[in-house]
Design a protein around this nucleic acid. Sequence first.
DNA 1: TAACGACCTAGCCAAATGGCTAGGTAACGG
DNA 2: CCGTTACCTAGCCATTTGGCTAGGTCGTTA
Lengths: 213, 213
Amino acid sequence: MPNASTRIVIADRNVITRVGLRSILERNPGFAVIAEATSYDAVIDAVDEHGPDVLIIDLDLGDDTTRGLKVVEEVTERYPTTKVLVLANTLSEMIVVEALRRGANGYLCKDDVKADELGKGIKAIQDGETVLGKGVGNLVAHSLGSSRQTEHLTDREIDVIKHVAKGLSTKQIAVAMFISESTIKFHLQNASRKLGAHRRAEIVHRASAAGLL
Amino acid sequence: MPNASTRIVIADRNVITRVGLRSILERNPGFAVIAEATSYDAVIDAVDEHGPDVLIIDLDLGDDTTRGLKVVEEVTERYPTTKVLVLANTLSEMIVVEALRRGANGYLCKDDVKADELGKGIKAIQDGETVLGKGVGNLVAHSLGSSRQTEHLTDREIDVIKHVAKGLSTKQIAVAMFISESTIKFHLQNASRKLGAHRRAEIVHRASAAGLL
DNA sequence: TAACGACCTAGCCAAATGGCTAGGTAACGG
DNA sequence: CCGTTACCTAGCCATTTGGCTAGGTCGTTA
């Protein structure tokens, strides 16, 4: 068969989304959904087993939020012929930039995407284009224009922010994490700078919007 | 026809979810999806026009987050025979309790629901049961057990919290909202009490988790 | 080896916040 | 008319925070 179907793997923890995606994609005979995955490990397994043309993935597949980015990186590194299309629930500058930096070929937002855009996007990606959904492009442009480049938070910083989000004071966090108050303040200062925030409340909001908590 | 199909209206801004839901439901010939809506107004119109047996609704259909609850209230008041099943993206004690208080017959979480649970849930709802998804039940129980009953935030309080989330100080918010600093602090004190929070960062986190921002 | 990043600690001070009491108005429903 | 709710304002004071400078270790990488 000279023009075989595009072989697609879907990774999303949500059944409804998986069924919906499959249903939309399979209206076009050029697309074949050959596997579904609902966890980070399953994604790797599925890609290893099927070596799909396209991986459509929701980065949020479990509790460990940053794991999704690592999976994108691993797939694009080990399988250069597999294109990765990120299908996100929410739009966060940091996540978008990180995903693209790690080799994602497209980034669409579930709530914004229209049915026909999915098929077009996949074809465009296979032609080597990078597909950015409505709003995503602006976000990236903004990120490039901004003097502050997107630095990603360290694990430790995220830990501290999680405690802050729970309403703990510096002192309480220090006790909970077995380190000094100074260190808590140090991590928060760094997180503030990286996120462009000036108050704890804003740090929490941005981290929350970025899906880091 | 003695045992006609259950007539269902789906309200969700996300195409993928709508297609997925329709696809899952229509595997069972007893269910017929007769309309889809993607905005609050469209939900009311669709219910007015079709008077469905069941309305499956995602409360988050637009920028005005609390509008979803009002829609539930309106539908259950005006059409007592129409059952309402809320299908949420996230799980928030306040939203769950408020939705049930306003007449919702069920509350499921998209990420947790399994394909077969949807059909079972709808049938149960039609039998007069109240269907609560995995985790939702515990949340409600917790809410009942808690001395603090779930009070909902006023519009003004949410306004203030949104400014806090942007990292503004009390003084800056006062200027932005044309009211005194005292009033800002007053609203935040009330919001703290209602949310059970003790720090601005926690207020923002809870409000954010509740989808209020 | 040197440089780097992530991590940890200390102290300072002005500013912001949390928690409190104690008032006020306007609108709405019983 | 009265109670309730949302909304607005004022002041007090202890605590927390933001923003800063100035150090340190450890492991990896160039």
